[in-house]
C-alpha cells in the first residue's frame, strides 16, 4: 500500500478542543447549532460529532469521500439509559432516543446527516483494535483514490462502566480515560504538520516484551528504517517502555504517552505523535489491556 497522509487532526478530551496540535475554543453551541438536537445528544455523541465536524470545517460535503469511525464500547450512557428504562417501565412507553443513539454508528451517521455527506460510512467496534481497523480501512480508501477521508475514534467513561471495569481488574494499571480524535487522510501531504502513515500492524493476545521488541525490529526492517533513527511514542506501560529503552539503541528518548486507558486511546496517541514528535520516523506502540497490540509507523510529509 502507498503511504497516506494525515492532513488534519482534531481532538476533544478533558473538555478541550485541540486542532492540529493547537488549543482552540470549544463551543458546542457554535458547532451543533440546533439546541434540541444538542440536548438530546449524550456526552459521547456530542463530543464525537463536534470533533468530527470541526475536523472537516471548511470542506464541502461533496469533497469528503468517506467517514470511518471507531469505538471500543460505543455509546454506553445511552445503552444504560435504555436498559434502565426497559426495567423501570416494565417494557412500556419507552423513549426511543437513547435506543437510537446507542447504535455504534450514531456519530458517523450524525456527521453525515448534519453535513449532508452521502459517501461511504462505516464503524468499527473491536476492543483495543477498533481504531487500527478503521485506520486500515481509511488507508485502503485513500489507496482506492478517495480524498478527504474522515477517520475518528470515540470512547466515553460512565459511572457504571467504570465500576464494571474496576471489578474486572481493568483499572489495575491505569485509570480510565475518554476522548474523541478525528483525522483527515489524503494521498498527498498538505499543511505544515502532515504526517504519512507508512505501516500499521496488529496482534492479539499476550505479548512478552521480547516478542514486542522482535516485532518492532521486523517492522523497521520491512520498511528499510534504522532502529536508531526511530522516535518511539509509547502507548504502553512504563515497564515496557523502559525495556525498549534498554534493549534498543535509540538516538531519541522514547516519549511516554500512556497515562490513562481506553480502547481507542491509540487514536489520541496518533494525534500526539503527529503534533509532538520531531523525528523523521515515529513508531507508535500501543497495548490495550495486554490483549490488543499495534504498531503504527509514521513518516514526515
Amino acid at each position: 500500500m502507498k503511504p497516506v497522509y494525515i492532513t488534519r487532526t482534531c481532538q476533544i478530551a478533558n473538555d478541550q478542543l485541540v486542532m492540529d496540535g493547537v488549543e482552540a475554543v470549544l463551543d458546542y453551541k457554535e458547532i451543533i447549532a440546533d439546541p434540541a438536537l444538542r440536548r438530546r445528544m449524550s456526552r459521547i455523541v456530542k463530543m464525537g460529532v463536534a470533533c468530527g465536524l470541526k475536523c472537516i470545517e471548511g470542506l464541502t460535503p461533496e469533497s469528503i469521500d468517506a467517514i470511518i469511525t471507531a469505538t471500543g464500547f460505543g455509546c454506553l450512557a445511552d445503552t444504560e439509559k435504555f436498559i434502565e428504562s426497559i426495567v423501570a417501565n416494565s417494557e412500556r412507553l419507552l423513549n426511543p432516543t437513547p435506543f437510537i443513539q446507542s447504535t455504534f454508528n450514531t456519530i458517523g451517521g450524525q456527521i453525515a446527516l448534519l453535513r449532508g455527506i452521502h459517501s461511504y460510512n462505516v464503524t468499527y467496534a473491536h476492543r483495543g483494535l477498533s481504531f487500527e481497523s478503521a485506520l486500515i480501512d481509511a488507508a485502503m480508501q485513500v489507496n482506492e483514490g478517495k480524498k478527504n477521508v474522515l477517520l475518528g475514534a470515540i470512547d466515553e467513561i460512565t459511572a457504571s462502566s467504570a465500576d464494571i471495569q474496576r471489578r474486572l481488574g481493568m483499572t489495575r494499571e491505569y485509570e480510565l480515560g475518554e476522548g474523541a480524535n478525528f483525522f483527515v487522510l489524503n494521498a498527498t501531504a498538505s499543511g505544515n504538520k502532515s504526517a504519512a502513515v507508512l505501516d500499521i500492524d496488529t496482534r492479539s493476545g499476550r505479548l512478552t516484551d521480547d516478542k514486542l521488541i522482535e516485532w518492532i525490529v521486523e517492522t523497521a526492517n520491512r520498511n528499510g528504517i534504522e532502529i536508531s533513527d526511530l522516535c518511539i511514542v509509547a502507548n504502553c506501560n512504563t515497564a515496557t517502555t523502559d525495556n525498549i529503552k534498554k534493549r534498543l539503541s535509540l538516538k531519541n528518548k522514547p516519549l511516554q504517552f500512556k497515562t490513562c486507558d481506553y480502547p481507542t486511546l491509540s487514536a489520541r496517541a496518533l494525534d500526539f505523535a503527529i503534533n509532538n514528535s520531531t523525528a523523521n520516523k515515529t513508531l507508535i506502540i500501543s497495548d490495550y489491556q495486554h490483549i490488543n497490540h499495534s504498531l503504527i509507523l509514521l513518516g514526515r510529509g
Partner: peptide, 18 residues
Amino acid sequence: FVTTISTACSSAGNAIML
C-alpha cells in the same frame, strides 16, 4: 486479521465488503 463492524442493520454487508 480479525475485526468487528457495527453499523446497525447493514453491518454484515459492510463486513463482506471489507
